[in-house]
Design a protein around this nucleic acid. Structure first.
Length: 721
DNA sequence: GTGCGACGATTTTAG
DNA sequence: ATCGTCGCAC
């Protein structure tokens, strides 16, 4: 068979990876080096040249988007419907395994997936039930505690603690949360992974089955795997299967959510793979790559990699120092204007920033200039309140013992069931070991509720019951449509929200009916014996949808550096390159977090294809306070000869705006860089200013005492000429 | 049981 | 500044 089309368009390193014989492979794939292409061609190569059955392959990614893209490209390359191929996310694949072996891992067939909001509510519920202080045990933090332990594969009893300690209470919450989940047939995201690992670990026959099935396992973005995911990979690999792992330690930016960049090195140690580096970049100019290389070079403990290109030198990197954040945004928008006027597309421009709050000024400026834009982030379709409300009803129709769904909507729309009543139901449920649904039924029958509450609660049960009966033989879309109508959700939003808000919710509910109508049950779900409704519910949790639907529009793209990973744009702005903002203050303070910030910077820079602007502001409002800061240290890590500085001047700001109206970077005559003397600490240099008036604080780097934060009003600093 | 004002926290986020 | 949660008054 002629397989030249699988190799023709590949460079040497790519070809070496695609055709690797025997053993494991670790592909260190730099930004823009064609890693997806390598994965896709590798799969095609295994199938066409090595005649590996598509059933014997497992390809794992982190996002549905990446999985979808890989599936599509493999299908096109091989000209087949890649149905039998297991390509999916870690969570999607674990979900599938759990559906097939639910009974073995002690889950009901109807088990549902909790998304992070559901999980948060449940954790809060448990804390309240235990009558613990939410100040001492903030639900968010406890949620993180639970997830971190699960991500590391630990059940409550495996967490060390002293009796009656804080830690002991956290463990207790974890345990009760877990009990609650089991009672209600609920599984959170980390649990999907953990149960699967336990299944394979504790059931030798299952382990043997899947080990013999997946002779080839391919993993994308390996630097983002957590402990549990690595454990899963090892279990599936066994002694005989071949791993093909692709990753880039320099693009590991998710350590804070459990990713272990060390897994790349561990993989190298544990499996002794062939290491192949993809260093040729097909995206950026030489200047941009050189600058990015030089920045990332400041990190220790790298696997080592240097991006290069056959492409052009390109323009220098443009650096702009603004007086304040407003001027920064105006500068950026003016440059975008130039770009568009010269025939560029708005969608080729991306403004990247460290934190979401920074988007506002850019949005305002774009709005003023009438340039279309789109902000990434925010709620996705299945995360919207109205959608989650409707889905909670659907969950109750599917499984009346789903307590999380029950709690969410027992009084939505308001039907006179208040906290008192719900507390009584909860109490009864706990005492009897029942679900909330069972408990309320029993309470009504026993007269355990006030007549008023009983009437309301009956109405709720009746509503669910009616829906169950009415939709027994209905299609999914009919069910969703009936539910939205009978629950009268739209009227509820209209009664308590401004018209436009309610209208948007109504729109979304209509969209939900359409989504249900066009829902295609995945073949594998059907095979696993799932009902269409169960599939739909799972999909909603596993695939919350795109951030915004209007992808087709030609828009300037605004997003955080994190969301920009994997994307590329001809024109990129890295905005807010300031100490304290990027690297973020919290990352500066916590040891070891700085390297990840630097990688984030590297990711940001390597998004740019042709032109890269880096901007920073001397002052900006943060949390309603004016702060002054110096340019990010990362800017200084770029060689001067690659940078062209743009001075602020009339040509960059719209006429009529005066710089002098902008707050200057000074407070009490003290500027950044000013030499000062303190009575006790001696001579030093001003490094940072923050706040105004009596709150103003100043950071001084003292020659002998080091860096100190002082309250300006009390510091008594003497200005040294 | 529902509706407003105080209070406090506020990096990044896929599944 | 802004948003979500909490406590208290209707």
């Amino acid at each position: 068979m002629d397989v030249s089309h699988l190799l023709d368009e590949l460079n040497d390193a790519q070809r070496q990876a695609v055709t690797a014989e025997d053993g494991h492979v670790l592909v260190l794939a730099g930004a823009g080096s064609g890693k997806t292409r390598v994965l896709v061609h590798r799969i095609a190569w295994l199938i066409q040249v090595h005649h590996v059955s598509p059933m014997g392959l497992l390809a794992v990614t982190f996002t549905n988007k990446a999985a979808g893209e890989m599936r599509g490209r493999v299908g096109r390359l091989l000209n087949l419907r890649p149905d039998g191929l297991w390509i999916g996310t870690f969570h999607g694949i674990c979900h599938r395994l759990l559906r097939m072996h639910a009974a073995e891992v002690g889950l009901p067939d109807t088990f549902q997936i909790l998304d992070s909001e559901d999980q948060y509510r449940l954790v809060r519920r448990v804390i309240r039930d235990m009558e613990l202080d939410e100040g001492e045990h903030p639900p968010r933090q406890v949620q993180g505690f639970i997830n971190h332990h699960k991500d590391d594969g630990r059940r409550p009893h495996q967490i060390e603690h002293f009796d009656r300690s804080f830690q002991a209470r956290q463990v207790e919450i974890y345990q009760r949360y877990q009990d609650y989940c089991e009672r209600s047939g609920l599984v959170d995201f980390a649990e999907l992974m953990l149960r699967t690992v336990e299944l394979l670990r504790d059931r030798p026959e299952r382990r043997a089955h899947y080990q013999s099935r997946f002779g080839h396992i391919l993993i994308d973005e390996f630097q983002d795997t957590n402990t549990l995911q690595y454990a899963l990979v090892r279990l599936l690999a066994g002694d005989n299967n071949r791993l093909f792992v692709v990753g880039d330690d320099d693009q590991s930016i998710y350590g804070w959510r459990g990713a272990r960049v060390e897994n790349v090195a561990h993989f190298n140690r544990d499996f002794q793979p062939d290491v192949i580096r993809l260093e040729q970049n097909y995206r950026s100019t030489r200047t941009i790559l050189e600058a990015a290389n030089r920045v990332i070079d400041h990190n220790d403990d790298r696997m080592g990699k240097n991006l290069w290109t056959e492409g052009e030198q390109g323009e220098p990197i443009h650096l702009f120092a603004a007086f304040n954040a407003e001027e920064e945004s105006e500068f950026v928008i003016a440059r975008i204007h130039d770009w568009i006027n010269q025939g560029g597309k708005p969608s080729d421009c991306a403004v990247l920033y460290r934190s979401n709050a920074q988007s506002r000024l850019f949005e305002q400026a774009l709005l003023r200039e009438d340039i279309p834009y789109r902000v990434y982030g925010g709620l996705r379709f299945f995360e919207r309140a109205e959608i989650k409300d409707a889905m909670a009803y659907l969950r109750l129709i599917h499984n009346p013992h789903d307590d999380a769904a029950f709690e969410r909507v027992i009084n939505v729309p308001a039907r006179g069931i208040g906290e008192q009543t719900v507390a009584r139901i909860r109490e009864h449920a706990r005492a009897q070991g029942q679900s909330l649904g069972q408990a309320v039924t029993e309470l009504i029958a026993q007269g355990g509720l006030s007549p008023r509450a009983a009437r309301s609660a009956s109405a709720f049960l009746q509503l669910i019951d009616n829906l169950v009966k009415a939709t027994e033989s209905a299609s999914l879309a009919e069910t969703v449509s009936a539910l939205v109508r009978q629950v009268e959700l739209v009227a509820w939003y209209q009664s308590r929200e401004p018209a436009d808000r309610a209208e948007a919710r109504e729109e979304n509910l209509a969209e939900l009916v359409r989504a249900a109508d066009s829902f295609d049950q995945p073949f594998e779900d059907e095979q696993a014996g799932l009902s269409v409704m169960a599939s739909f519910l799972s999909q909603a949790a596993l695939e919350a949808g795109e951030h915004q639907a209007e992808r087709w529009e030609d828009c300037v793209q605004l997003m955080t550096l994190h969301s920009a990973k994997g994307l590329e744009f001809p024109l990129v702005f890295l905005a807010g390159m300031e100490e304290g903002l990027f690297p973020h203050q919290k990352s500066i303070e916590e040891p070891g977090r700085l390297a990840e910030e630097r990688r984030l910077c590297y990711v940001g820079m390597t998004r740019a294809m042709q032109r890269l602007y880096i901007t920073h502001a001397e002052s900006r409002q943060t949390y309603g306070q004016t702060n002054f800061s110096r340019p990010s240290r990362f800017v200084a890590e770029i060689p001067d000869e690659l940078i062209e500085s743009i001075r602020s001047g009339p040509h960059v700001t719209p006429a009529g705006r005066s710089f002098h109206s902008a707050p200057r970077a000074e407070a009490g005559g003290l500027r950044l860089g000013a030499s000062v003397r303190h009575a006790k600490f001696g001579p030093g240099t001003v490094v940072s200013l923050e706040g105004q008036g009596p709150n103003a604080r100043i950071q001084v780097n003292f020659e002998s005492a080091g860096a100190k934060w002082l309250v300006l009003a009390y510091a008594n600093l003497e200005l040294v000429a």
